[in-house]
Design a protein around this nucleic acid. Sequence first.
RNA 1: GGUGCGGUGGCGAAGAGGCUAACGCUGCGGACUGCAAAUCCGCCAUGCGCCGGUUCAAAUCCGGCCCGCACCUCCA
Length: 475
Amino acid sequence: MYNTLTGEKEVFNSLEPGRVSMYVCGPTTYNYIHLGNARPLVVFDTVRRFLEYLGYEVKYVQNFTDVDDKIIRKSKEENVKPHELAERFIREYYQDADALRVKRANIHPRVSEHMDEIIKFIMGLVEKGIAYEVEGDVYFSVSRFADYGKLSGRSLEDLQAGARVEVDARKDNPADFALWKKVKVGEPSWESPWGYGRPGWHIECSAMSHKYLGATFDIHAGGCDLVFPHHENEIAQSEGLYDAPMARYWLHNGFITVNQEKMSKSLGNFFLVRDILQKFSASVIRFYLLSTHYRSPLDFADDKLESARKGLERLQTSYRLLQEHLDQGNIIVETNQTDIFVEFDKDINGYRKQFLDAMNDDFNTALAIAVLFDFARSINTIISKGRITSKEQQILVSAAKVYIELAGVLGLEIEEAQVEGGSDLVDGLMELVLSIRKEAREKKDYQTSDKIRDTLKNLGLILEDTPQGVRWRRQ
RNA sequence: GGUGCGGUGGCGAAGAGGCUAACGCUGCGGACUGCAAAUCCGCCAUGCGCCGGUUCAAAUCCGGCCCGCACCUCCA
């Protein structure tokens, strides 16, 4: 996997055999999540699923930033208490993340519930002399941490040269950042040795990751805009206090762009997951997010999601056809396997291997998906060969199993969309309509039969005539 | 100004020294079908931003240039 810290792909070795500890920076809960927020969720959820597939026991921690300037500002606008606002959007977060099949973390720590740990952490830094208090604020002294800049590849001189931060004369160094902010009127605050106040942005991840994963853990992940300053500062805090490497592998996903520009809240060009779900299913969104390598930028546009929709549908169709083929049970009892099935049987393992090789190479989901397409084509071809022997049926059953298993590593729902068919009423009506159409076709009254097909299509019901009779499905 | 990422067919996107440059979408031709749909088969980059260099061999390595994006301030 590619490690931002070294700038190279490295072989992954976990700290403890068979176990992986992983911390992912979660959202600040003051709004619904947008697609840009969803990308790391889906990408790192996939990393987790893959590690679990390989047999690791993954301890996955993802925080909620529920104490923050933006929450306070928005709560004033909406005239609700900050913690109520945060609480509400945590619930909304789960709704979107669950839809995208993002597995819940083992622990979802919140800043508001970890004040003791945070304050103790800061006290430790002050005692070690790498943080200092000024009038109720506490700052981290970057000049006291020799490795400052190692993650983002910049030096303190670089930072000063291009400094856009207004200089605060009370700081020893302009790059020093706040660990603790003195309370302002009307803001939530907690008691501390420096008076009432609240934590700075970066300290929470250092304190909470330490509590749940220890001074050193395996993987720390987040969006690439967090490399600097957020993760750089986390390293300074954690390594400054514990003198041990914070995380061994740092993973960063690329941005979602809109017209090649970063999707962000400040530019206002963001799309909420919730709104996109009006047009596309969560599975399609997930598929789309995984169709590009996680470190590359990914441009958002309706036609690109539409293309993803068609692609995913292709994968789903293969599975559906395979199931139907097996359900039809047109097995003939013979012993001689044809060559093509022998070949296909070998291919199944080949696809699995190719898929895993792709994932093993820095989570190349785009390539892994390509393998699924090859697999799908193979399935489509083999089942078009018609009747099968019982031995051949076994091969198809195992193909179905592997196919679902690999899709599952990506968290893709391949077998969905068919059962949702409907109520007894719909089924009953469809039975009636289809029998009328069947009669019309038998009488070669194609005008009527096509009218039925076209009308149903406009209602979102697709009819497909096959040698075994008509088949219908939604969408 | 500093730091980093990237430019591959109509679109999206893999590939990172050597088989005909994957895969998906679109388009075109064919098979199947009453016609469709789905599926299958075939076609669509003598070329991978531009110019040089290294090499028997370069999208892939090196140098220069052009263009785009991001970070250096809250953002995933």
